[in-house]
Design a binder for these strands. Structure first.
Lengths: 233, 233
DNA sequence: GAGTGGTCTAGACCACTGT
DNA sequence: CAGTGGTCTAGACCACTCC
């Protein structure tokens, strides 16, 4: 009698990974087509497709119509990192989150920012500077410009009680954005806010977000020394 | 006559996103089931499933068998970042990559690392220190331990010519790993290698990788000032 | 033009979990 | 235990692209 193994897309994926890691299929090789594999594994083509599609998204396979599927030559590892709202980020570390607005004004942003946010010349928008604390210790310094043309409601919010980070996530769904991470030596302003020595290495995140080509916000997050961002491959 | 609109999973996804962003479905709300949506959109349930599954993976929906699908209360944005091999990273910046091995030894790693890599006590493994250059300017300092128990072949490689980063990616397929990012002030050693002032803020990546519970490598990458890592949301 | 992956359909069964 | 999402199937047509 034959044993009917359940063929799931996960098991197919695992088998494909095994063949790659054990060099049965080498980097650059053309692997069999979906029909052939479905036949070999005794399953539907859709199941093979699901398994291979996900590996392609992960960067391990290159797929092309008519061209077939190849094992990626230089696998580019993709790590997914979570960008939680800051309050949850603090609470996840087992600390109590609090928030303090340091300054709020309506002003004309610097020229380079006007361009990046695609503003009319000399257009005044909302500028917030705030401090996030974990167990009353400075955790992160936030320097934010909000495009009040895109999100007019923002002008009615009292950001001494609401926290801009959280309010925007809940009220200004974004369609796209870009993020940069880098290290910077603390300038005087940041050092004073975080209560550290000027010059300390600061993990910094620069984030710009849009909703359908209209800029929402530009924000620079300066994390207190000791902060680290973790992720899995 | 009726116009037959092509219903793709992308178009369904877009419509769902619209309903969320325009508050037709609010954070925490239970949205209609797959069957109902398939009926509404006039497509197969599998198509709705594909659209919603991907939104769930992106963190915008919470799905549970029997419990139905809800709009995530605190959407956790997920950014995917590429971890290319360093040579490509340099070349992508339009520079010429080169590589210099600073030191290579067989040694017992520090105690904490022995535990993290799950080594037998006082087991000697390979320790490499190298410098990556972009157009002959220091780009990144690499401090790496390789578990020669997991990857014995590594002992036969001449890392003065081969670059460990690249060799491992091609020859030691990993199953999982974790990565940490943080900022650190350059110590004397790193400062000298990168030819910068001690104390400069250094963007640092710590990466540990495994193949099926066996550690492959532990590596600390220290990027020269000015480096930044970018990604899209 | 032909072959490959990309997607859709209609139906089915299964697995988890809330009530 | 019943309802929901998770997955598989067999078949079909389409879109891209290499030859």
């Amino acid at each position: 009698m034959t044993l009917k193994k359940p063929m799931t897309w996960q098991s197919i994926q695992a088998e494909v990974l095994r063949r790659i890691s054990e060099r049965e299929w080498r980097a650059g090789d053309l692997i069999p087509g979906e029909v052939e594999l479905a036949d070999e594994f005794g399953c539907a083509r859709a199941t093979v497709n699901r398994a291979l599609r996900q590996l392609a998204e992960a960067g391990l396979l290159d797929r092309r119509r008519k061209g077939g599927t190849r094992v990626t030559l230089h696998p580019v590892r993709k790590a997914t990192l979570d960008i939680p709202i800051t309050r949850l980020e603090v609470e996840q570390r087992g600390a109590q989150h609090s928030y303090k607005l340091l300054s709020s004004e309506i002003a004309v942003p610097p020229q380079d920012l006007q361009i990046e946010m695609d503003l009319q010349p000399d257009r005044e928008i909302l500028h917030l500077i705030a401090l996030h604390l974990a167990d009353n210790q400075p955790f992160m310094y936030e320097d934010r410009w909000v495009n009040s043309d895109t999100i007019p409601e923002v002008l009615d919010i009292d950001f001494t009680v609401e926290n801009a980070n959280e309010w925007l996530v809940q009220n200004a769904l974004l369609t796209n954005g870009n993020i940069s991470f880098f290290a910077a030596n603390a300038n005087w302003e940041v050092a004073e806010a975080l209560n550290i020595e000027p010059g300390s290495a600061i993990f910094t995140i620069l984030r710009k977000t849009w909703r359908a080509k209209k800029s929402i916000t530009w924000v620079r997050l300066c994390y207190a020394p000791g902060f680290q961002m973790d992720t899995q491959i």
